[in-house]
């Protein structure tokens, strides 16, 4: 029977990362930026552009690597039948504050294009798409907190209409030291394979509430 299944998921928070419910990496006593660099090295992604990204994009990139890599090999989902649908509550405010610092003082007014370009939340969708050559649907929603019902409804609607066949979906929050990510890979498959999880709001909620 064709259905929608969560075929992979990850959590990154409290300087720890888990994949499909299993802890895979932790680095305590580091700040967010250092933790991201350590996780990047652990994933052995060989993608120098990572270092240019702001923290929101790094978090999104690392999450997508975690769910797409199986046994160290990245599954390729290039093309227009994969969507990237993400949400958070603070948009790009973390980087907005950095840009504001560069313009606050007229005597030292040096707005940086490399900072400004990240003052949009959907840039992380672009980064994930560039990395994976994904050209499908993309949207970034801002909501007070994760809304599993809305996310599930909307992604189901995209899958039902065959606008996409699979979706990278998640909650990516970076606001100062508040760093919190949950990302899922949702696929339309013909037969449920054991271990695959039904794509339902309650499951999304359970995954998000997992303790690492």
């Amino acid at each position: 029977m064709t259905g929608y299944y969560i075929t992979g998921y990850c959590i990154i928070r409290n300087n720890e990362a888990s994949v499909n419910g299993k802890p895979v990496f932790s680095a305590h006593g580091k700040n967010t930026r250092e933790f991201f660099t350590d996780l990047y090295k652990f994933l052995d992604s060989d993608y120098p552009k990572f270092h240019k990204m702001d923290n929101l994009c790094k978090l999104g990139f690392l999450s997508s690597e975690l769910i797409l890599k199986k046994n160290g090999v990245r599954t390729i989902f290039s093309g227009s039948d994969t969507g990237v649908i993400l949400a958070n509550s603070s948009s790009s405010l973390d980087t907005d504050r950095m840009h504001q610092v560069t313009i606050i003082n007229r005597a030292a007014y040096f707005p940086s294009p490399a900072v400004f370009v990240y003052t949009l939340p959907n840039i992380v969708i672009g980064e994930i798409c560039i990395r994976n050559k994904i050209t499908g649907e993309g949207s970034f929603f801002i909501q007070e907190k994760l809304n599993p019902v809305f996310l599930t409804d909307y992604i189901r609607c995209l899958l039902d209409c065959e606008i996409i066949n699979r979706c990278i979906a998640g909650w990516l929050q970076v606001d100062g030291d508040d760093c919190d990510a949950m990302m899922c890979l949702i696929e339309k498959t013909d037969k449920p394979i054991s271990g695959f999880v039904n794509f339902e709001p309650s499951v999304i909620r359970d995954i998000y509430n997992l303790r690492i």
């Binding site: 290039s78 227009s80 990237v84 294009p113 370009v117 840039i123 969708i125 672009g126 980064e127 798409c129 560039i130 994976n132 050559k133 994904i134 050209t135 499908g136 649907e137 993309g138 949207s139 606008i163």
Partner: peptide, 11 residues
Amino acid sequence: GFSGNDANHIS
């Protein structure tokens, strides 16, 4: 209506 990404460059 549809959306899609260039998968090429962020700016």
